[in-house]
Design a protein around this nucleic acid. Structure first.
Lengths: 346, 346
DNA sequence: ATTAGCACTCTAACACTTAGAGTGCTATTT
DNA sequence: AAATAGCACTCTAAGTGTTAGAGTGCTAAT
C-alpha cells in the first residue's frame, strides 16, 4: 500500500474542514469530509486524523457527538500555511471600481464608499481609516489672519487632503509678514512629510544664526500648534447590517458584543495605526491578540499608499468564520484602487 | 354615582397602557392597569374601555388572549395629546455636558460626541447632521492659487465651520487679482448666508454696469463652483449596539432591518433636511410616514441653532416602543448645548 | 495502515401536556 | 345606567417525552 505523508494529509483535511465550516457554518463531520475527497478516504480514517488534529488543538468538538469546528489556532494555521487567495470576479471588481472611482473631488465620499465596497463584496463590515496627516507629504500652505489674535492655516497634501486649523497667536502679524512666512514655508517644505516638519524646522533653526532666525522661529511657532495634525482620526464604517446575516449572530448577545467592538473607535484606531506600519495584510483571529478578548471576531487589515507612501489603512471585521482568502484579496484590491483614486485627487 | 368623563378616562388608560408597555415591553393586561390606578377601577371596567380603545384603533391584541399593545396610531395620539416631558436628571445633564463641551476646537469630535450623548442617555441610536453650509453665515473667505489652473477657496462661517474647495479655473489670475477679489468678498459678504451668496452677487451684478462689472463677475464665477457648498452631508451615528438591548430585536431579522435603516444615509439625510425647517421636535412613528415602511421604528428629530439661526439637526432612532417623553427632552437639551458649543467655537 | 461495522451519544424536532395570564360575556351590584 | 364580580374560554410559554439522524470512537477484519 502506498505510503501517505501523515502531515500533509492532516493539512489537507484541516483545510477541508475550515473551508466546509466557512461555507456552511455547521460543524463538519467525517462523512462530509470524505465526500469532499470523493470518498478516496473513508470516514473512519478521517475520524482518526480528526482525533489527531483535535489533540493538536486545531479543531474541537462543540459536543461529544457533533462535527468538528476549527479553533482560533486552527484558523491561524489555515491562514498562515494552507489558505489560497481567491481571485475577484469581474463583477466584484466592477462594483468596487464604481464605488471608489466616483468623479467627485470629495474625499469623505470616497472613503465612505470604500468602506461600503469592503462590506458589500466581503459580506462583513468594512472600515476605512483616513489618510494619516503625519505620513502625508506637504504640498502647499496658506496662512492668513482671521482676526487680530487668530491665524488660520490651510495645509494641502500631495494626496489632496486639506487640513485647516485656527490658532490663537498672541502677537499680531501683519498680512505682509504672514505672506512672507507663507512663501518661505511653501518654498522650503516641498516634499517634506507633515510629521517631519517640526524636526525639519528645528534643524533649520540650529543652522541659522543671523537675522533670519527670528523669522524662522516664528514660522516654526505657527506650525507647532498641537491641533494642526490632530483630528485626522476619522473612521468610516459600513456593513453593520450585513454582519447580522451570519448565523453566529443568531444570539443577540453576541450580535451586541460584536457591534460594541465595531463602535469602539479607539480600539480600532489603535489597531489600524499599529498594523499600518507592517507591510501587506494582517490578520487578527478571535481571542488571539485583540484588544478586546470577548468574542468570536476577526479583523483583517491592510494599509494603503499614495505615491508609494503608506498613508492609511482599511480593514474588514467579521466573525472568525470568514472567507479569509476572499477578504484578503478584496482588501488588497481596494487598497490599491483607493490609493490610485487618492493620487488622482491630489 | 358620580358621572365619569368617558373620554378622559379612555385617555388616561391609554396613557397607562403606553407607559406600561414602554417600561416592560410586554403586552399589558387589564389587571396590571388596574393596579396602576391603585385598584380604583376594576379590571373588568378597564377591559371595557380597552375594547373601546381597540375599536378606535389605538391599541391591539397580538393574539386573542394576550394583553394590549399600542398601535402606531395609539403612539401618535399619545405623543400628541397625552405625553408629559420628562426632566433630565443632573447626572444625565452632566454626561451630556461632559461629552459636548470638550475643550477642543475639533468640530468633528464634538459632533461625534453629541451622537454618542444621545445614544447613551436615551438608550436608542443617536444621529447628528453636520451644520448645513447653506444656512451658515459667511464670516471670512480666502482665495489662493494652488497652481496655474487651480484655485483653492477657504470659507469660514460664524459657526466655526471651515469649508475648502479646490476648483479648476481656466484663466489664470495673478496673486494680486485674487487678493483684491478676496478683500472685496470679505467686505461685501459679511453676514450673508452661504446659500444666498449666489443670488446676492447676481443682484449686485445687475446693479453694476461700469468697469467694476468684470471684476465682480469673476468673483461670482469663482463662488459658483458647484462643489463649494456640497459635501457637508455627513451624519454622525452612534448606538447601534445599545439598540440590541431592546427585546424587540430578539429576532435577528428585525435587528437587521433596523440596522439597514440606520445605515441608509440618504434616507436619513432627506428626513433630517426636511424636518430641520420645522420648529421644535418632530416625531415619526412606525410605518406612519417613514421613507421606509418596513419596521417598528420611530425617529425623533430636532434642529439646532447657532446664533438663533437653524443650522442643522439631531435625531434619535429606536423602536416605536421608546420613551418619547425622555427622548424629546434629551434632544431639546442636546440641541441647545450643541448650539452653544458651536457658538463658542465660531 | 486502512476500513467496515457497530454500539453509543447527543441534538433538533415534534407532539403532548399544563399552568397561568388574559379576555369577553353575563349576571349582579350600586 | 355604570361598574363590577364571576366564570368559561383561549392562547402562549414552558416543560416533558419520544424519536430520527448525524456523528463519534472503538474493535476487528482486511
Amino acid at each position: 500500500m502506498k505510503k501517505v505523508d501523515t502531515e500533509s494529509r492532516q493539512n489537507s483535511i484541516l483545510n477541508a474542514i475550515v473551508e466546509s465550516y466557512v461555507d456552511n457554518a455547521t460543524p463538519v463531520g467525517s462523512r462530509a469530509i470524505a465526500q469532499r475527497f470523493r470518498n478516496t478516504i473513508s470516514p473512519a480514517t478521517i475520524r482518526n486524523v480528526m482525533a489527531d488534529l483535535e489533540e493538536k488543538g486545531l479543531i474541537s468538538h462543540p459536543h461529544t457527538s457533533a462535527g468538528r469546528v476549527p479553533t482560533d489556532k486552527g484558523y491561524r494555521f489555515y491562514v498562515d500555511s494552507l489558505l489560497e487567495l481567491k481571485h475577484l470576479t469581474k463583477e466584484e471588481e466592477a462594483i468596487i471600481n464604481k464605488l471608489i472611482h466616483q468623479s467627485t473631488s470629495d474625499i469623505e465620499y470616497v472613503m465612505q464608499n470604500a468602506s461600503k465596497a469592503i462590506s458589500i463584496v466581503t459580506n462583513v463590515a468594512g472600515v476605512v481609516l483616513t489618510p494619516r496627516l503625519k505620513r502625508s507629504i506637504f504640498k502647499h500652505i496658506e496662512l492668513f489672519n482671521m482676526d487680530d489674535s487668530r491665524i488660520m492655516a490651510v495645509i494641502v497634501t500631495t494626496s489632496g487632503f486639506v487640513k485647516n486649523s485656527i490658532m490663537d497667536f498672541e502677537e499680531h502679524l501683519t498680512g505682509q509678514e504672514l505672506t512672507r512666512i507663507t512663501e518661505f514655508l511653501n518654498s522650503e517644505l516641498e516634499g517634506v512629510s507633515l510629521g517631519e516638519i517640526k524636526s525639519y524646522l528645528t534643524r533649520k533653526l540650529l543652522e541659522e544664526r543671523d537675522s533670519f532666525y527670528i523669522f524662522l522661529k516664528r514660522a516654526a511657532d505657527i506650525l507647532s500648534v498641537p491641533d494642526l495634525f490632530k483630528a485626522d482620526d476619522h473612521l468610516y464604517f459600513d456593513g453593520a447590517a450585513c454582519i447580522m446575516s451570519h448565523p453566529e449572530f443568531m444570539d443577540i448577545k453576541k450580535a451586541r458584543l460584536f457591534l460594541m467592538a465595531c463602535e469602539d473607535k479607539k480600539g480600532l484606531l489603535n489597531l489600524l495605526n499599529q498594523d499600518m506600519e507592517l507591510e501587506g495584510v494582517k490578520i487578527h483571529i478571535g481571542k488571539e491578540n485583540l484588544y478586546n478578548e470577548i468574542q468570536d471576531l476577526s479583523i483583517v487589515t491592510c494599509n494603503y499608499k499614495v505615491n508609494d507612501m503608506i498613508i492609511g489603512a482599511i480593514a474588514a471585521i467579521g466573525p472568525t468564520r470568514m472567507e479569509y482568502g476572499k477578504v484578503i484579496s478584496v482588501l488588497k484590491y481596494i487598497s490599491s484602487e483607493l490609493g490610485k483614486e487618492l493620487e488622482s485627487l491630489g
